[in-house]
Design a protein around this nucleic acid. Structure first.
Lengths: 195, 195
DNA sequence: TTGTTTATTGACTCGTCAATCAACAAAAAC
DNA sequence: GTTTTTGTTGATTGACGAGTCAATAAACAA
């Protein structure tokens, strides 16, 4: 009994199911059938809407990146100083919506995919550059020429925290991780201030 | 014309080929046939010696960890102060033998595997703890109670650097990465010294 | 020499899975 | 009321890959 206008609903359900399934299995070795079943439809329908497994992954990836981007933008908008902007980026990276097991697992697998999938690589690169650029501008006023390196370091710390979170037995604690990265920021700002 | 005593030779060839193939494909979705071919033998022989694909992966992983462990031990032995020991761990992590594309790719995939494979998880946990513990002891004299957090942070930075290296377009530059992490160490030591 | 162990492979089994297709159903358009 | 568009699936195809096995051969032991 087909209702019309299902496409967006199905697509979104599939994207969510893809992330959930990746989080459950831990790998990109998930089957379209499983994803489709989780989303409450047949695998044929999944193919109908996305064309291929890979396209589904990429769509899911884009979704994760979009969420994360929104989180960052929101936090940036609420910041009122350069330093605050840096802290905003850090906190957004560990916000409850992004720093969840399934999502982290998806990120990890996106990294794996990005090694060989040009589109995945491009997507990740864009976002990575954006984060570094945000941090860079936020730090420039206080750190000057050192801003670039500090930004890279913070970005690496964030990714490192994600990696560690995958292995952690307990549920990942975003607040603690954010705190740790901010400690570094404190250090850097305290010493590095040129003026 | 079978020569005797091939087992260790074959095993080692397979382990090397496994890492090379993972580096080449980027994923654990590599076939035993491909690995075997790369190692100059039939897939049946690979199964004969390792029993299963998974066992081969784990053996390869152990090999990587062993190499890394040796690198760390060597560097630690040459260090003559607590601070030097911390620097040793950092430099060992970016040594030419460990900080190579294929090996980094292997690490990344081990992380993926560790999400669900208990043995892989255990292996990684052990090594992670060992590194943190080494760093912790090295930092304790100067940082006291703060040593733990600093050690965790450094460990995360190292992993983050590995992640970034996977995506980097250029060949990963271990020296630069080590420098970056050591900068953090400098900062921490300068400020954190309690005495 | 005759058997036993070690090395080695090609051919085969069996399962899995992405992708396709034919067919059916309901809404919308004409 | 017929045609077209949109939604939906069960069944099928086709490929691929892990693991097994039987067979062969060289080395070694008796």
């Amino acid at each position: 009994m087909p209702k019309l206008g299902m496409e967006p609903i199905r697509r979104s359900a599939l994207i969510k199911a893809t992330i959930a399934e990746i989080g459950h299995v831990g790998t990109l070795e998930v089957t379209v059938s499983r994803i489709a079943k989780r989303a409450g439809m047949s695998s044929a329908l999944a193919h109908h809407y996305f064309g291929s497994k890979e396209a589904m992954f990429l769509a899911a990836m884009r979704h994760v990146l979009t969420l994360y981007g929104a989180e960052v933008r929101g936090a940036l908008a609420a910041a009122d100083s350069p330093e605050g902007r840096a802290r905003a980026v850090i906190r957004a990276s560990f916000s409850a919506s992004s720093f969840r097991r399934e999502v982290i697992s998806a990120w990890l697998n996106f990294y794996v995919l990005a090694q060989t999938q040009p589109q995945a690589r491009r997507l990740l690169s864009v976002y990575q550059r954006r984060i570094v650029s945000n941090l860079c501008h936020a730090l420039r006023p206080q750190l000057g020429a050192r801003a670039g390196e500090a930004a890279q370091t913070i970005a690496a710390m964030i990714d490192g925290a994600y990696l560690h979170a995958v292995l952690g037995l307990e549920a990942p604690d975003g607040a603690e991780m954010a705190q740790r990265v901010e400690s570094y920021l404190d250090l850097t700002l305290k010493i590095g201030a040129p003026a």
